[in-house]
Nucleic acid binder design. Structure first.
Length: 459
RNA sequence: GAGUUUGUAGCUCAGCUGGUUAGAGCGUCGGAUUGUGGUUCCGAAGGUCGUGGGUUCGAAACCCAUCAGACUCCCCA
């Protein structure tokens, strides 16, 4: 059979794994620095946990897992009626009762709700795991991909918004990716809907504004009209969207536009609090962006979106404050705020900007050539003694032509080639060649371990 | 769910308006040379032209269907 991969999934070759690990470890270390702790949840959840949480479209994109034992004749009746439901577009527990995780947020909410008695609040967790969506893949979108989330639940404190902004700034600065952190408050959007006299159209307005980046102002206006806003209302939205200037200028104009509006005041207070608690170093990458909306409608306060500077790429991170996430699981009044890192896009950005460090690939740097039976034996012995001291080394497995072995060493990018021929055997030495500068050195076999231990670049 | 597009050797691709035994480069393997650098030379292996139908004297090429990938829309990360 022809080997192939399910649509929208990927293998990660060694070089890629190293690079991804570099990104993940960097972000992880920042999470830990702020006291976030790791959480892992199962790849699959009960289907009820997921269904109905992501909207009608979302339900369709959940990968359902077929129950085992559907061929059990004792259950034939149930199975058949179950299939009738499936054909009707419903789900049925007789056919499927589990599904692959669609994101990390709902499983987290489920976890918090289940363990509310024993968790210490505020609970700060980060989670880096794959999720699955039955979407049609396209550029930068896969059916299996990783999400990297950090959330804190059980506190209303705006200091957490500040922490999360710091986490974004610190992580991307460690990764050397220049970013803008766009910030807005959903309360300003509420204020906008209110001043249009269309509070009930908040979601419609939010969804339309969210597309501004992609489709432009005119199309947004068309969309708003399509969603039932009249000209006067659209004018207000347009006025709101066209506010420009520095952060302070924007905030002043917004205060003016929404003078007397309670929601707006709260929203502006949130943003000001955030700005006032950031060091100027971090503050300079913050962009107040009242056009930021975020598609998901569970956000209630500050929202974030991170954009790489100088790269044509959508957002590489996003998040915000949400109230009552666990309400879905019968636990209400738990406020949370979280951020997410778009690992795959971050990877692409770092690749494009060529910012991956050399050491991202933690390669074995020493190869012993195998130039004869007893020569090879000796080489293997010496390699073993290096390995015992924690120094990675490889031995060419077969006695073949020198050329072939050397070219293997070049292709796999070894730094040191250790050559042992009869001459070396006779004198209990080895010939160590450094391929970075082509210098050769005769090293006594008994000195091989200290020799490499003395090399800074060997871990 | 809808659309566009591609499918020929392990990889990247040629293959003209249908016309003998389907080619190249790279890679792989073998040999010679060099026997401390990717060289050079010689040679070899490797293809049901995605699959199934159809048109034709003749199909990798044209038509239909089907499968798979890539991309776009919807939606999202």
């Amino acid at each position: 059979m022809k080997p192939s991969l399910p649509q929208g999934t990927r293998d990660f070759a060694p070089e890629i794994v190293y690079k991804r690990a570099y990104i993940l470890n960097t972000i992880k270390s920042v999470f830990e620095l702020y006291g976030f702790q790791p959480l892992e949840t199962p790849a699959m959840e009960n289907i009820d946990t997921l269904m109905g949480k992501y909207g009608e479209e979302g339900d369709k994109l959940i990968f359902k897992i077929l129950n085992n034992g559907l061929d059990n004749t004792d259950k034939a009746e149930k199975t058949k009626s179950g299939f009738a439901n499936i054909l009707d577009g419903k789900t049925d527990k007789n056919i499927t009762e589990r599904a692959l995780r669609y994101d990390l947020t709902i499983p987290f909410a489920r976890f918090v709700a289940m363990n509310r008695g024993t968790l210490v609040f505020p609970f700060k967790r980060y989670q880096i795991q794959p999720v699955w969506r039955a979407d049609r893949p396209q550029k930068g979108r896969y059916r299996e991909f990783y999400q990297c989330d950090a959330d804190v639940v059980g506190s209303d404190s705006l200091l957490y918004e500040v922490e999360l902004a710091q986490i974004y700034a610190t992580a991307f600065s460690k990764l050397k990716v220049p970013v803008e952190i766009h910030v807005n408050s959903r309360k300003l959007l509420t204020a906008l809907a209110e001043s249009c006299g269309a509070a009930e159209k908040l979601t419609s307005i939010t969804i339309a504004i969210d597309k501004l980046d992609k489709i432009g102002l005119e199309k947004v206006k068309e969309e708003l009209a399509g969603r039932g806003l009249d000209e006067k209302q659209i004018d207000i939205v347009e006025k709101y969207l066209s506010i420009e200037g520095s952060n302070t200028e924007k905030l002043n104009q917004l205060a003016e536009l929404f003078a007397g509006n309670e929601s707006a005041k709260k929203g502006l207070d949130e943003i000001n609090f955030l700005l006032n608690h950031l060091t100027s170093n971090i503050g300079k990458s913050i962009v107040v962006d009242q056009t930021l909306a975020r598609g998901l409608d569970y956000y209630t306060g500050i929202i974030f979106e991170v954009k790489a500077v100088g790269v044509q790429m959508g957002s590489i991170g996003g998040g915000g404050r949400y109230d009552n996430l666990t309400g879905l699981f019968g636990v209400s009044g738990v406020s949370g705020v979280g951020v997410s890192f778009g690992i795959d896009r971050i990877f692409d950005v770092i690749e494009e900007l060529q910012l991956f460090p050399e050491e991202a690939a933690n390669k074995c740097k020493i190869i012993f050539l195998n130039l004869g039976e007893s020569e090879g034996e000796k080489a293997f012995e010496l390699a073993t003694s290096l390995r015992e001291q924690g120094i990675a080394a490889e031995v060419y497995p077969d006695v073949t032509k020198f050329d072939k072995q050397f070219s293997y060493a070049k292709k796999k990018d070894f730094q040191y080639v250790v050559i042992i021929e009869q001459k070396e055997l006779d004198s209990d030495t080895c010939n160590v060649k450094d391929l970075t500068n082509n210098e050769q050195q005769i090293v006594a076999m008994t000195d091989i371990v200290p020799f490499f231990q003395g090399k800074q670049d060997i871990s």
